[in-house]
Amino acid sequence: MASSSSAGNAAQTPRKSLGLVANAMKRKDSFIQLFAMTGIFLLSIRSLGQKYQIHDLQEDTIALKEEQKNLTDRMKNIKRSLLHEASLDSSGLFASRLRLLFGEDH
Rank of each mutant, 00 (worst) to 15 (best):
G39C: 11
Y52D: 06
S91V: 01
N77I: 10
S6M: 07
S17Y: 08
T61D: 12
R80Y: 08
R46I: 14
L98S: 02
N70F: 08
R74Y: 09
M25S: 10
N77H: 07
R27D: 07
D89S: 10
S5V: 11
S81A: 10
L98R: 00
D73R: 07
M37W: 03
L42M: 12
F94D: 01
L101S: 05
A10Q: 07
I62Q: 13
L82A: 03
S17H: 10
S87W: 01
S44C: 09
F35P: 00
F31H: 09
R80K: 11
D60R: 15
I32V: 13
R46T: 15
Q58S: 06
S4Q: 07
K28H: 11
L100K: 13
G39Y: 08
M37E: 15
S91T: 13
E85G: 03
N70K: 15
A24G: 03
Q12C: 07
F35A: 14
I45H: 02
S17C: 07
I78N: 05
S90I: 05
A11Q: 08
H106N: 10
Q58A: 12
K26F: 09
E59W: 02
L101V: 07
S91F: 01
R46M: 12
T13H: 13
A36Y: 12
M1E: 05
H106C: 03
F35V: 12
S30W: 10
H84N: 06
M1P: 02
N70P: 00
S90D: 09
N77E: 15
S17N: 12
E104W: 02
E59N: 12
A36N: 13
S44Q: 06
R97P: 00
K51H: 13
G92N: 00
K26S: 10
E85F: 04
Q68I: 11
D89N: 06
G19E: 05
L101T: 04
D29S: 08
L83S: 02
S90K: 08
A63T: 11
H55K: 15
A22F: 03
H84T: 04
G92A: 02
Q50L: 15
V21Y: 07
S81C: 04
L20T: 11
Q68Y: 08
A11E: 05
L71H: 03
S91C: 01
L34T: 03
E104D: 08
T61V: 09
L57H: 14
F94M: 06
G92R: 00
Q50S: 11
S96R: 13
